[in-house]
Design a protein around this nucleic acid. Structure first.
Lengths: 132, 132
DNA sequence: AGGTTAAATAACCAAGTGGTTTAGTAAACG
DNA sequence: CGTTTACTAAACCACTTGGTTATTTAACCT
């Protein structure tokens, strides 16, 4: 239904996580909110550099910023993390389901020697699967 | 120890997942191996375009390719998926742990009105947490 | 008012991405 | 053998990314 929107959200989340600096920032924020200078401290990078990374994180919804005097404390949001996690889990679920099904099928073949090809789908693809 | 290498692997995995076409390919491969033309079919994109995406997926270790005559059947590997999942899970674990700890702390404060600030860490950051 | 601190913006750069078309390779097929 | 099939490689394009320095904004503190 909202496939395109979901796509955009996932794009942003995975893009945000695809950089070691940003992952380190996320990991740091998981332990508690922090200001931009606090976040920048561990890195050999200029402040605007960190600022740019934070904008990417903010655009993905992973990080939100509020204002407190001249500070802009950063806060890690949970939902985008959950969405990314959910996508991977679903892909893995499908993968494992197929694997289990194949495994059961092979076991069945071994028990009663039917040698039927009615359950195959993509021809040579399945042929490859049977050899692994 | 192998932090940099892990970084590179995670970079590649998240980068690979940060594109809707590549995610669709991964989702398709979760259901079973497929050739490049089979993978390209659902998309309004030239074959070399798909080929490039597959190279990104291959570089990340998410996809491996074997040879079968002139076909190059693609196969989804589980490990990089697990690594990406593991990283997110760990971040979320830390996030929730802190949340639970804060929650317990607030409950404790409410029970016995100590009003002690000895357990705070990053000053205004925690102050912000208390207001959410 | 003037100075300091926190952070964002602007302008710039090299390198990478995502797509194309055109051309090439390698194996099967008739 | 030549042709088709499946795919990769090369060259090119507009656009984005990740980084820099230099400049501004905004709020606080004398």
């Amino acid at each position: 239904m909202t496939a395109v929107i979901d796509d955009e959200r996932l794009d942003a989340a995975f893009t945000a996580l695809a950089d070691p600096t940003r992952r380190a920032i996320v990991a740091r924020l998981a332990r508690g909110d922090a200001t931009v200078t606090e976040l920048a401290a561990p890195f050999a990078m200029s402040m605007p550099g960190i600022s740019k990374h934070l904008r990417v994180l903010e655009r993905s919804g992973l990080v939100t910023r509020s204002r407190h005097a001249q500070f802009r404390p950063c806060h890690l949001e949970r939902e985008p993390l959950d969405e990314a996690l959910g996508w991977i889990e679903e892909a893995r679920r499908v993968w494992r389901e197929r694997f289990d099904k194949l495994d059961a099928h092979l076991r069945e073949l071994q028990r009663t020697d039917h040698t039927d090809r009615t359950t195959t789908t993509t021809d040579h693809a399945d042929q490859k699967e049977a050899t692994e």
